[in-house]
Design a protein around this nucleic acid. Structure first.
Lengths: 340, 340
DNA sequence: ATGAAAGCGCTAACAC
DNA sequence: GTGTTAGCGCTTTCAT
């Protein structure tokens, strides 16, 4: 096993081999036009033969750019965030950027560590797709002096840009669909209490109610946690507190599959006895029993656009500071006309 | 809005403010014992007041370590990989490491770009949790000269270490459970054809069959793709080719929910008419209808251990090169005794 | 069109 | 215990 000594080739080696200065090598590396064709060829050859790979950290030292962005998400365990990550990833790699991922798990300490790490690594920008962002956190973010784009969250502070789904429209759309189906007693199982998305969807729900002259009854609200177990317990609470409801709008699809399970256990068939509406349109929404009627968010685009905004900001293009994407109703089989 | 000029504070600023040399500042930064207590205090104060944040790229230039690792996964859309990511993340952040994530999507070109990126960023190590690794890819990986640990894949080459689940044991365990339940005609819906995990689970399946004197019939094998749609089509194929089967072992849980849907559409009740077995024990396995009996993999640990191995390798500790974790049977409701 | 040289922020000998 | 200094690999004026 002849493990060769590890001698990384530098720009100096290339320069020597090609018989030029390091400045020239640097120029061909950056495709500067002012290099003679033959010189360029000679350098290219040396580059190839030596298998040169630029040392980005070294380059960063002088350019002050690292071609790296930081991405914070609530938790990668939620497929919704997974799609956002894919979006960010894809456009990042297309542009030779790397992304450092951190899931905060909504843990403040973790968030602090993350921001510190990003700072020390001198990332060129930060994307925060964490549904709830502590004040402390946001303060730090501003001090960080690099562009920040928030996904599905509020634009806050001078340095912050954002991209999100119009969640109040989404909440209204979901609820209105249920109302059109003849439902009058519609529950809502919440997500994380302090998430903007939760607040907005609830607002949409109330708007739809008001619009159709339906009373808002806070006993039709159940807490959740954006996860299946929260959907399960939320549904159970609804079942005992308001046995008369005929439909329930869930904060997200994860919550909905928990609700579906609670209903199954209670022996209430869906959608015959109660309709359930999700949100997000995750992959498995089409595979649940019954397949979930839900509100689609352009998850992938949320991430891709966020990354593009960062790139624009990078290159000095003043991009729109606050983008919003429209949600879309996806009708499957978990909602049906009210029976009564 | 007094957007202050962006003047990152350096070690020189701190040194000046504290009235010491940069070397001393560096020493306190690294908790070197040979610094006088009062000097240390003075430096600490300067550090705080100036809000100093070390410039990692600069440091890397001299130390040749970036405190960054690269992580390649097949696709973040599969919750199985999401858990692995969480595991590596967690131990990385604990150790002040950053992780650059890339999903390869099993796209060779993407894989090349990824490796190039990792190289240029001078990552300290690479974790590959991509279920299929092209030869080309592996070759590159070796040339990369940094420690590589493979997750759920083969140890290959001098620089490569690995951690994985014993998938042949898992496949055997799954199949044997079905056999014990009285099933004789058991199908297998595959994952990606060239994935080691797929190969191993199939091997386990055949071993169980042999062990119990059951014949192996290749018409009981259906192709899949490790995703729900593959499970759906695979199950449909099985349904038409071998209507007599009473149980099916699926490459993973994602495949299983696809199979469940196919069965539902075909009007075959699960587990009464056909039992279905999954693999992975994803979060939603407990929420499907019926809840999935499956083989648990320690997904999070796979990632956490991989990262720890990298850390060990970093510090010169020769760690075990080939770790294997045992799978575990999780009994829920998608499998029942054979009726005939 | 090309080269010389300065310097980015930091660490690590080495000297005192 | 502390300071001086020489780079790490690269880009970028500034000359030529």
């Amino acid at each position: 096993m002849s493990r060769e000594a590890k001698v990384p080739v530098t720009i100096v080696d290339v320069a020597r081999k090609a018989g030029v200065s390091t400045a020239t090598v640097s120029r061909v590396l950056h495709k500067s036009p002012k290099v003679d064709a033959t010189t360029r060829a000679r350098v290219q050859e040396a580059l190839e033969e030596l298998g040169y790979s630029p040392n980005i950290p070294a380059r960063s030292l002088v350019t002050k750019r690292t071609r790296t962005v930081g991405l914070v998400i609530t938790t990668i365990a939620d497929p919704f965030f997974a799609d956002i990550v894919r979006g960010v990833e894809d456009v990042a790699i297309e542009n030779d950027y790397g992304v450092i991922l951190c899931d905060s798990n909504a843990d403040p300490e973790r968030e602090m560590a993350t921001i510190r790490l990003f700072q020390e690594k001198r990332v060129d920008g930060i994307i925060v797709a964490s549904s709830r962002v502590g004040d402390l956190y946001l303060g730090l973010l501003e001090k960080t002096k690099v562009p920040v784009v928030l996904v599905n969250n509020e634009k806050t502070g001078a340095y912050v840009y954002s991209i999100g789904t119009d969640d109040v429209a989404g909440g209204e759309m979901a609820t209105e669909y249920l109302i059109r189906l003849g439902h009058r007693r519609i529950g809502y199982i919440a997500g994380l209490a302090d998430a903007k998305s939760n607040h907005d969807r609830l607002t949409g729900y109330r708007q739809a109610l008001r619009k159709h002259g339906l009373p808002f009854d806070s006993s039709f609200l159940a807490p959740g946690n954006a996860r299946p177990d929260g959907g399960l317990s939320g549904m159970n609470q609804l079942l005992t507190n308001c046995p008369s409801l005929t439909a329930v709008f869930c904060y997200n699809d994860l919550t909905a599959i928990g609700a579906l399970k609670a209903l199954r256990i209670a022996g209430k068939s869906v959608p015959d006895l109660v309709s359930v509406m999700g949100y997000d349109d995750l992959l498995f929404a089409a595979y649940s029993e019954p397949p979930l009627t839900t509100i689609e968010q352009r998850k992938y685009d949320l991430g891709a656009i966020a990354m593009r905004m960062l790139l624009d900001l990078q290159s000095g293009v003043e991009s729109v500071s606050n983008n919003v994407l429209e949600p879309r109703l996806v009708i499957r089989e978990s909602c049906s006309p009210a029976k009564s």
